[in-house]
Simulated assay, not measured.
Amino acid sequence: MNFARRSTLILGIATAVALGTAGCSGGLLGGGGSDDTGSTSGGESGPIKLGMVIPISGSSAPTGEYMKNGATMAVDEINKDGGVNGRQLELLVEDEACDAQQSVAAANKVVSNGAVVSVGGYCSGATLPEIPIFQKAGIPMIIPAANSQDLVNQNAKNVFLINGTGKQQSSAALKFMKKQGYKTVAIVDDNTSYSKDINTETKKQIEEDGSIDVVLSTSVTAGESDYSAVVRDIMQAKPDLVYWTGYYQEGGLIINQLTKAGFQGDIMVADGSVDASLVKIAGGADGVYATMTQTPDTIKGAEDWIANYKDKFGSAPGPYSTQSYDAVRLAAEAIKKAGSTDGDAIIKALEGIDGFQMFSGPLKFTPEHTLSSGGFVILQVKDGKFVLADDLAS
């Protein structure tokens, strides 16, 4: 089944589930009930509940843990400072395991438990079917990590992305490829929404630019352990650069198998592979590049925040911890400006945000509810760690 048909089917199922559950008496607890349009209203007492649907199990669980911790830090800081509009925040975390079917159940659970804003979203393929569920419930979605263009293309008024989009990531990838002088590139995805989106968009931009040849554009099946077939195809194509646009589990295996096959070109991965797990799975990945919005240790002035994170959780923060921290802060700011937990009022407040300071810089959303600048940089693995290699400023 092609992706467009699969996305339509997933969204159809999710919509049906949302319609079937939103009318139940327990469908919108804590947010007050719903009016005829499905938006939450009333219930302006007790804790303000934020839903966070992220991978807690499965291969992406380490990133989910970073995200939960970042969000928890923000909740604790805001509550210590008096909360929002005189009320405390409460974080409702549910596991989607980067699985579309499980994400539908998880999203419905946070809705039924009274969430008024969603601050989750890592795997785009799992986040996509959540949109009609939260939309029907009148719940704004501030998405800290998932960034497939398919999320933007839903044109859902309740969806706001605070990570750069796949299109912006592809532009950053092309800019770096040209700076490095690559003449040929192979692009490999894992057939998920996020990954295929970047492959398709990068290939399109490269072909429009005309200075680089795409000698291979292909997909693999996520969850396998043997990628010898695609390794063989890459070796035959002999590209200057391999751009892997999937997640780190498969990315680490492909890098490992390419290295063993004697591949001499460069390798670059997209943001879904930026994690210490990639290096471990690859058996070492020094020299590998990555397109990525900045991680905590590449952000100037984040030293105190990192120290606080380490004190609280006993380990260093990882990818998307800062974005999740900012997602909660942004939700709190919008609720404060709205003066209520009504979904439409919060959406209007989010659309009016201008200059709210986040780790990525001052925030102002585009009409499509995306960042005006993607903020992508190039990282590189050195001594087993991702470090800043090129800020793409010039």
Results as ranks from 00 to 15, higher is better:
A302N: 04
T184C: 00
S124G: 10
E44I: 15
A393C: 08
D36A: 15
V387I: 14
E90F: 01
T21Q: 14
T366D: 04
A389G: 12
D344T: 13
V231F: 11
A316C: 00
V110W: 08
I346M: 15
G223H: 03
T370H: 01
K80Y: 00
A345V: 14
K179I: 12
G120F: 09
I212H: 01
D275V: 10
V387Q: 13
Y309I: 11
S193F: 07
D190V: 13
V387A: 11
D99S: 10
Q154W: 02
P319E: 12
T165C: 04
G125A: 11
D189M: 07
V377I: 14
P296Y: 01
C123M: 06
K382N: 07
S34I: 11
K336R: 07
V230G: 09
S277W: 06
P47R: 01
S228G: 06
R5C: 11
F313H: 08
V185T: 02
G164W: 03
L216K: 00
M292Q: 14
F176V: 06
A316R: 00
E303D: 14
I206H: 00
I13T: 12
V159S: 00
D390G: 13
Y309M: 05
Y289F: 10
V119K: 14
L241K: 04
D390M: 14
A115E: 09
T165G: 06
D354Q: 05
Q264M: 05
A222L: 06
A172E: 10
V220Q: 05
A186M: 03
I281L: 06
K348N: 07
N256K: 15
V116G: 12
F160W: 05
F376C: 07
Q149H: 07
I54D: 04
V214W: 01
E77F: 03
G318R: 00
D383P: 01
T127P: 01
G31N: 13
N108G: 15
S39T: 14
N153W: 01
W244D: 06
A307N: 12
E90V: 04
I255F: 04
T322C: 00
S118K: 13
K382A: 07
G375R: 03
A332G: 05
T218R: 03
K109S: 07
K310V: 15
N108R: 13
V117T: 14
Q169K: 09
Q323N: 12
V231I: 14
A229N: 13
V17T: 12
F313W: 06
T21W: 08
G355W: 02
G375C: 05
A115Y: 10
D311Q: 14
A229C: 03
N163V: 10
P55I: 08
D391M: 11
I131E: 02
E130H: 00
P129A: 12
A345P: 08
T40N: 13
G375Y: 01
V116E: 14
A156E: 03
V110D: 09
D304M: 05
L350H: 12
S112N: 10
K337T: 07
P140R: 10
D189H: 08
S148P: 05
V53M: 03
G355N: 03
D233Y: 00
E130I: 06
T184P: 04
I56M: 13
Q154P: 05
A115H: 09
T366N: 06
L388I: 05
D326I: 01
L91D: 11
L11D: 07
N308R: 15
K348S: 08
S277N: 15
T245I: 09
N153M: 09
V242A: 04
Y243Q: 07
D150V: 08
V231T: 11
